[in-house]
């Protein structure tokens, strides 16, 4: 059996393994009731804005074959409360924290960035791709010029490395990736959820109060793999790959496609221990297949 080293350096962040949590699917106290958070390479917390957000009306969740729709709308308690409660709790764990940043405008994105600059947060993930927030959110993520503008502005005030999270709801994701790379992003993460919809045949209304929602889960994995593969060939920034990862083998597929680290999202809502199960599954896969480290696994790809 091969002795495996799972550690990676992601855009300057030393991680004991390449597995983190997708924003919106991890809450420190709640997830921590099921597994030791310190076993993860990093955690990405729920989108946080400078001020509290109410989110969307309910129902916010609908199931689909092999996936789900959500239209939570980035409900969050605001940066002040986040620093006190979420970061305060995470202090006791040996795990780097990546804060997912939400905003309706460039000013709001910059405001939350500045509020978190003096915290222990290791890195930022700029959420310009939430399909459930009309102003800001996906508005920035679908236009290369606007994506570059907000990246540049946040980069200017940020004292931490910046990941920009990309939406799949565009004609050419590589155009957005290139734009944020030129604007100074330190890494990209992809994919955010796909815009989806379901209708309740009894009430003849959309299942979600918001009408549409973000589609995630194993059903979207092939789309995510394809986009990671395309973006890998378009830019040289580190890539955090996500979209439907349920197992260690799924994670290996993303790494081969060009990701440097991965995030587990919907799987963790289905099964709270999924992120650590993916770490163990990836380790077992690499031992079995004879990959000594993540670089060797990535290099083995023949595509």
């Amino acid at each position: 059996m091969t002795k495996v080293d799972l550690s990676v350096n992601f855009a300057g962040l030393q991680m004991k393994n390449p597995v983190t949590t997708a924003s919106g699917t991890f809450a420190a106290r709640e997830s921590g009731e099921f597994y030791d958070i310190s076993r993860l390479g990093a955690v990405i917390t729920k989108g946080v804005a400078a001020e509290p957000w109410q989110g969307n009306p309910t129902p916010r969740i609908a199931e689909t074959y092999g996936g789900m729709l959500n239209a939570v709308g980035l409900q969050n308690p605001g940066a002040e409360e986040y620093i006190k409660k979420e970061l305060g709790y995470l202090k006791d764990f040996d795990v780097p924290v990546i804060a997912n940043l939400a905003g309706h405008s460039i000013e709001e994105y910059c405001a939350v960035t500045e509020m978190l600059n003096d915290t222990d947060v290791a890195m930022y993930e700029l959420n310009i791709s939430c399909p459930n927030v009309k102003l800001g959110g996906i508005g920035f993520g679908t236009d290369p010029k606007m994506a570059a503008e907000v990246t540049e502005a946040v980069k200017k005030v940020s004292r931490k490395p910046l990941i920009v999270k990309l939406t799949p709801n565009v004609t050419d994701i590589t155009a957005i990736a290139k734009a944020v790379e030129s604007a100074g992003a330190d890494a990209v993460s992809l994919i955010n959820t796909l815009l989806g919809m379901r209708i309740d045949l009894r009430s003849k209304r959309p299942l979600l109060a918001n009408g549409t929602g973000g589609f995630s889960g194993p059903a979207v994995k092939p789309v995510a793999i394809r986009m990671v593969y395309q973006v890998r060939r378009a830019i040289s920034l580190p890539i955090l790959g996500l979209g439907g990862i349920m197992t260690g083998e799924d994670a290996a597929e993303f790494l081969m496609a060009g990701a440097d680290a991965v995030a587990v999202g919907t799987a963790a809502l289905v099964d709270p221990t999924a992120p650590v199960d993916v770490v163990e599954g990836l380790k077992a896969f690499m031992e079995r297949e004879g990959y000594e480290n993540i670089a060797a696994l990535k290099a083995a790809f023949k595509g």
Partner: peptide, 16 residues
């Protein structure tokens, strides 16, 4: 009762 996602408080799908 509300339509839930995770059931353990992570996804914030089921608010009242």
């Amino acid at each position: 009762e509300e339509r839930m996602g995770c059931g353990f408080g992570a996804c914030v799908g089921c608010v009242c």
